[in-house]
């Protein structure tokens, strides 16, 4: 498969009242054609900032360095005009909160029509037909009628579908989904995941999925990158990552999760706690950011920053003392 998006050494520095925040630290990432890559992590790990940085959607004072190559062009160097042509047409993005991403004073049809006019030059009847086709694609019933609805007249799930429809308007090559189901109920979430899975098969686009939900990752992703404190700590094929995580943070997350079948009453079942707190992303020392919370940390962890290194085929980990390989756990 050909590489569609390649991110190299992305670094993002944001500024707030207290100074600099290194929100993303040397993150490299690649998305191949037709591939679903999940970027996973807890709040504040830099996963959303990474996604926003790709399209240069961060506040103007953010400092972004590194390279983001999309179809041979560096998005970070591109003149804004050319980038705008790519945004929404070749790369589309769906955000967590569909209410705030839609303009409340225009109908859904207006807003989809706007995208179609802008990027495809479609107008009038043609645009309307395409828009209703898009709504059917995301399984919105009686699309003609829904096109005339305002965002507030739709439920959260419907709005998120409309957002996806809008994102699909120009047959993007890459769809960035930023926590697409976090604000939704499980049933609605399952419906949206179904739609995304189906769309991916039918349209063959690549997806960069930003989420904190390991269940959503398990459902959709081909490959997973785990982020912690602004850095990527592990990167693997999805089955491998769940079956045999090598980074202690990933392993800890998986064991901290209350899962179906885990019951507090049974045999003193306990969830694994990761002690301590996520570090503040200022003046991070040249050390493993997870070391203070890590059960496997040793002296060397606190005086060098582990780079991401391959540990097995298609599996990379940024850890000096990774979890042992679980025998027979590979699919």
């Amino acid at each position: 498969m050909a590489e569609l998006l390649s991110v190299q050494d992305l670094q993002v520095r944001l500024f707030d009242r207290l100074g600099v925040v290194v929100a993303v630290r040397d993150v490299s990432l690649s998305v191949e054609e037709g591939e679903v890559v999940a970027l996973v992590g807890e709040s504040g790990c830099g996963k959303s900032v990474t996604a926003l940085a790709l399209l240069r959607l961060l506040p103007p004072d953010a400092q972004i360095s590194g390279r983001v190559t999309f179809q041979g062009r560096d998005l970070l160097q591109l003149p804004l005009k050319e980038l705008r042509a790519i945004r929404g047409r070749d790369i589309a993005m769906v955000f967590q909160e569909p209410m705030t991403s839609l303009n409340p004073s225009f109908t859904i049809g207006n807003q989809i029509g706007e995208v179609l006019r802008l990027h495809k030059g479609l107008r009038g009847q043609q645009a309307r037909e395409r828009a209703s086709e898009l709504l059917s694609l995301v399984r919105i019933g009686s699309p003609e009628q829904r096109l005339r609805a305002y965002p507030h007249q739709l439920s959260g799930g419907m709005r998120q579908r409309a957002m996806i429809a809008m994102a699909l308007a120009c047959d993007p090559k890459l769809l960035i989904l930023d926590e697409p189901t976090t604000a939704l109920d499980v049933t609605t979430q399952a419906q949206i995941l179904d739609i995304v899975r189906d769309l991916r098969q039918r349209l063959g686009m690549s997806i960069l999925l930003i989420t904190h939900d390991l269940g959503v990752v398990a459902d959709l992703a081909d490959r997973v990158a785990v982020m912690y404190a602004g850095s990527k700590v592990e990167d693997a094929e999805v089955h491998r990552l769940f079956a045999a995580p090598r980074h202690p943070y990933t392993a800890g997350l998986l064991r901290a999760l209350p899962r179906r079948g885990r019951r507090a009453g049974d045999a003193q079942e306990r969830l694994l706690e990761i002690p301590g707190l996520v570090p503040v992303l200022r003046d991070l020392p040249d050390a493993c950011a997870f070391a203070p919370r890590c059960p496997r940390s040793q002296d060397d962890c606190s005086n060098q920053h582990p780079g991401l290194a391959p540990c097995e085929a298609d599996h990379r980990v940024a850890c000096l003392h990774p979890e042992p390989i679980v025998a027979g756990a590979h699919p």
Partner: peptide, 17 residues
């Protein structure tokens, strides 16, 4: 499935600021 608490998972938690 038995899972032990990680060593060092003592209840005392560091303060943010």
């Amino acid at each position: 499935m038995t899972i032990a608490t990680l060593p060092g998972a003592e209840p005392t938690i560091a303060l943010t600021q």
